[in-house]
Simulated assay, not measured.
Amino acid sequence: MAFNRMESATYLASLLARGFSRALQERGQKLGFAPGQFPVLLELWSEEGLTQRQLLDRLDIEQATMANTLARMERDGLIIRRKHPNDKRSQQIFLTDRARKMETAAKEAAAAAEQSLLSGFHRFEKELMLEYMRMALANSARQGETS
């Protein structure tokens, strides 16, 4: 039995993720952020002062990946870290003024990246695709719980 990668949801999802990442990278680079930083920015735009542990829990990212992402964001002037007032071992993460000012443009860049990849989709097709993606992600989360 031959494996047809174009019939594989896993293979296609990987290609699609890379496509979205590339489309966001092109737009985000002009604003000063990388695609891997965007989920962290979204969380911090929603609620500043989170700890690295809270970000890990919310974003389901590996510890090493998160540490590298935060170090790069700090280096790039997007975040600052401050000692947690109640937990000497933790640091809270805050956005810089630069990162706060780019929120609208960054969200618009992400929407434009999505639109470029979903060009030609009817609204209901996009909604169905998103629903199917959420279902697959829920299955993946359940699978992770039973592993």
Rank of each mutant, 00 (worst) to 15 (best):
residue 1 M to V: 14
residue 3 F to W: 10
residue 8 S to L: 04
residue 10 T to Q: 09
residue 10 T to A: 15
residue 10 T to L: 12
residue 11 Y to N: 07
residue 13 A to W: 02
residue 14 S to C: 05
residue 14 S to P: 00
residue 14 S to Y: 04
residue 17 A to H: 14
residue 17 A to L: 14
residue 17 A to R: 15
residue 19 G to K: 08
residue 20 F to Y: 11
residue 23 A to H: 05
residue 23 A to M: 01
residue 25 Q to M: 05
residue 30 K to I: 11
residue 34 A to H: 11
residue 35 P to H: 03
residue 36 G to A: 01
residue 38 F to D: 01
residue 38 F to L: 09
residue 38 F to V: 08
residue 39 P to E: 04
residue 39 P to I: 02
residue 41 L to V: 00
residue 43 E to R: 09
residue 44 L to N: 02
residue 46 S to L: 11
residue 46 S to T: 07
residue 52 Q to G: 09
residue 54 Q to N: 00
residue 54 Q to K: 10
residue 56 L to D: 01
residue 57 D to W: 00
residue 60 D to Q: 07
residue 61 I to E: 00
residue 62 E to I: 01
residue 63 Q to K: 14
residue 64 A to S: 11
residue 65 T to E: 15
residue 66 M to C: 08
residue 67 A to I: 06
residue 70 L to H: 03
residue 72 R to G: 09
residue 73 M to N: 00
residue 74 E to D: 06
residue 74 E to C: 02
residue 74 E to N: 08
residue 76 D to N: 06
residue 78 L to E: 03
residue 79 I to Q: 00
residue 79 I to A: 01
residue 82 R to N: 03
residue 83 K to P: 07
residue 83 K to V: 08
residue 86 N to T: 09
residue 90 S to M: 10
residue 90 S to T: 07
residue 91 Q to M: 12
residue 91 Q to R: 15
residue 92 Q to S: 12
residue 94 F to A: 03
residue 94 F to E: 03
residue 95 L to C: 05
residue 95 L to V: 05
residue 100 R to D: 02
residue 104 T to M: 07
residue 106 A to G: 10
residue 107 K to Q: 12
residue 108 E to Y: 09
residue 109 A to Y: 02
residue 111 A to C: 12
residue 111 A to N: 14
residue 112 A to E: 14
residue 115 Q to Y: 08
residue 115 Q to G: 11
residue 117 L to F: 05
residue 118 L to W: 05
residue 123 R to F: 13
residue 124 F to Q: 13
residue 125 E to P: 01
residue 126 K to A: 15
residue 126 K to I: 13
residue 128 L to E: 10
residue 128 L to M: 11
residue 128 L to W: 13
residue 129 M to T: 09
residue 131 E to I: 01
residue 132 Y to C: 11
residue 133 M to E: 03
residue 134 R to Q: 08
residue 136 A to I: 09
residue 139 N to F: 07
residue 142 R to T: 10
residue 143 Q to T: 10
residue 143 Q to P: 00
residue 145 E to R: 15
residue 147 S to F: 06
